[in-house]
């Protein structure tokens, strides 16, 4: 049984990692089509660097991911506070809306937001993309932060209130510092979700604001592009760093 279990795990992880390993290998492979190993090269990274369209899309993606992660975490923190601390009419309805946003397939969110932007007269580009990315990151931010809020010692907040702190001061001076690990986790998760998105972006951005996944999609649709391998290798490295960071903060969260 033990041997079987090991074999099973190995098989699944082989399937999950083999494509990524091949991709990274091909990024350094002299052979353009990756058909066989022709020797080590760094020229695909140079080709990537010298592709202005690709680099611009990468810059756009990072800007959007940074802004969307920051704003989703800020709004998410407020929403988590509202849902856990306050009782108000319509609370359950709003919570339901948020869970629906989380469960909804990307394609539905994508076209619903496209229809919204057109109806409101928001041009498709930076702003529509940013608003859309905040929207799909938000539920994940709220869930991450609310989990931490629910684990709070209520006496801390009572003590602050007894000492005469107003609600605003209480949130700013007591709740916010205690939320720090959850805010970081939420930011990292939102950043990753934003960089990962293909479906929503392909509907809500315009030709003036191309982002990385869309650029890669249009490049690889027609064939093999070695500079995409190089870029993908960098993206794999980036997500590895993000996973490690989030694990570190997860540890901090568990040890008070």
């Amino acid at each position: 049984m033990k041997g079987l279990r090991l074999l099973f795990f190995c098989g699944v992880f082989c399937y999950l990692y083999l494509p990524i390993v091949i991709l990274v290998g091909n990024a350094f492979n002299l052979n353009r089509y990756g058909l066989r190993w022709d020797g080590f090269t760094g020229k695909w990274f140079v080709a990537m660097w010298n592709n202005p369209g690709l680099m611009e899309a990468a810059r756009h993606s990072l800007v959007i991911a940074f802004a969307a992660a920051s704003l989703a975490t800020a709004i998410g923190a407020l929403a988590a506070i509202a849902f856990t601390r306050y009782r108000f009419p319509g609370r359950r309805l709003l919570q339901g809306t948020m869970m629906t946003l989380m469960m909804a397939p990307d394609i539905i969110l994508a076209i619903a937001l496209l229809v919204l932007f057109v109806a409101l007269g928001i041009a498709l580009g930076f702003w529509s993309l940013l608003l859309a990315h905040i929207t799909f990151c938000l539920p994940f931010a709220v869930v991450t932060i609310a989990a931490r809020l629910e684990g709070f010692d209520p006496h801390l907040l009572d003590a602050a209130r007894d000492l005469g702190a107003s609600e605003g001061r209480l949130l700013w001076r007591v709740v916010l510092p205690l939320l720090r690990p959850a805010l970081i986790s939420s930011w990292l998760l939102s950043f990753t979700l934003s960089l990962d998105d293909v479906i929503v972006s392909s509907f809500v951005t315009g030709p003036a604001y191309d982002v990385l996944p869309l650029k890669i999609f249009s490049m690889v649709k027609v064939g093999v592009k070695p500079e995409v391998n190089a870029l993908a290798t960098i993206m794999v490295g980036l997500s590895l760093i993000l996973v490690i960071l989030s694990q570190l903060f997860h540890k901090e969260k568990n040890t008070p």
Binding site: L23, L195, I216, V236, L240
Partner: peptide, 12 residues
């Protein structure tokens, strides 16, 4: 892998 871009993984 889940944190790695899904389009990149499909391409892989």
């Amino acid at each position: 892998p889940f944190w790695t871009n899904s389009l990149v993984r499909t391409y892989a």
